[in-house]
Nucleic acid binder design. Structure first.
Lengths: 226, 226
DNA sequence: GAGGTTTTCGCCTTATAATCGAAAACGTGC
DNA sequence: GCACGTTTTCGATTATAAGGCGAAAACCTC
């Protein structure tokens, strides 16, 4: 109808994780038309008794252990009339993150792909992956969202690797540590790596001070006088 | 159904403008149940042949001259099962901005309210207004979104008033000018105000260099090496 | 214990933002 | 016309945040 009362509503998950030093996204291969054999984001229909966030968590539970998700945030609505053939489907897309130190079990039709080297995707899913990627990259700059990509504890080198992979270019370890420390999002645990076989000085272990998303407002002009 | 195929989809507009030195939002008073006499955001049903942004522009055209909108951006989806009584309605909310120097004609049931002093609103519309307000305030810090609140040309004092009203606290004019100039988002027109009856030095006129949204990434750690 | 490796830290430079006060450019009143 | 009040503008200075670099620390192996 012309009043939108019959629009089907789906939820889509862009699940991102640092794997093999690259930012990768979880996709599954369709076995049916339309978009046969193309790669799709995890998805599902919104149910009557849930909001979109509850729905995306329920859909993902069929793919991975939802407890391994370290962050879930709404991205955007995709609603072009022709984005899915034959019928009208409105999609709410999410950005979901998994820490780098877990390897969730996934179904046989599901694989990880680097976000900068995607296979042929179904419908508008490539665009959605890129929106998810860009949102993550932007938030790495002005929030503590690194906590969702990193393990609970990590060395500065490991964190550098994570940030470099997510951003797509090398960042300096020394500066990364100081910037995040000054902002108060990073703190030392006081312990170091057991001094195994690295051949160098055993690195100190760090953790994020908070595992909730916090923004750091950098511009003092626009900050209220303290 | 349990698959979301019958969810009604509405679009909601948080239309913000600086009026009387305050950040205000456009609301209209409902004349029917539910939420009789409560104040509501402009809204409408998504039609079959339009995406959500086209829809919000169409809905707003019934309230104001859409050409006066200087910025439209998607905010978020609101989808709690009980957000509207009796039936399931999914909402995509938008942030819409109007420059401070226009006073659009609005219907008789429509008024402007300061976002920090709202009347009794319908449904979850108060929450949506606050999300719109916070999004605007955040973007004032790291984008050139001021162009959407300011007239085409303005003095530094006027711009200071606009930023102060939008942010809810006083900002320093001298610093505002230099920060925005350095970022390259502000430029002088070369002309000054006709030297009327101000009693002081006639202020220079400025304009924003672009009327498209541009973000300024402040953190060089996270910036690729140039 | 000498030499290689990785991490950590201090020093210095650069970039950006904030404060402050003086000078500029206008009105008004005498 | 000129002193005075007003508002804007601009330069000088300070404060804060970020980036680069090399030396020192803390481990390993031989």
């Amino acid at each position: 109808m012309a009043d939108g009362r019959d629009a089907a509503h789906e939820v889509l998950a862009g699940v991102l994780q640092i794997r093999d030093e690259r930012l990768q996204v979880m996709l599954w291969q369709r076995a049916k038309e339309p978009a046969l054999h193309r790669w799709s984001l995890p998805r599902g229909w919104l149910a009557a008794d849930e909001d979109v966030e509850a729905s995306i968590r329920r859909q993902l539970a069929e793919k991975v252990d939802v407890h391994k998700l370290s962050h879930v945030e709404q991205l955007s609505v995709f609603s072009s009339p022709g984005r899915v053939p034959d019928r009208r489907v409105i999609a709410t897309a999410f950005l979901c993150l998994v820490p780098a130190d877990v390897d969730p079990e996934v179904p046989a039709d599901t694989r990880w792909f680097p976000v900068d080297d995607l296979p042929a995707t179904a419908f508008d899913h490539e665009e959605i992956v890129l929106v998810a990627r860009d949102r993550l990259r932007a938030k790495l700059s002005y929030t503590n969202i690194g906590f969702a990509l990193a393990p609970a504890e990590f060395t500065v080198s490991e964190l550098r690797g994570i940030y470099s992979a997510a951003l797509g270019y090398q960042v300096a370890a020394t500066n990364l540590q100081r910037v995040l420390s000054r902002r108060g999002v990073l703190e030392p645990t006081g312990r170091t790596v057991p001094a195994g076989r690295s051949g160098g000085r055993p690195p100190a272990l760090f953790r994020f001070t908070s595992r909730d998303l916090q923004v750091t407002d950098p511009f003092a002009v626009f900050r209220p006088p303290t």
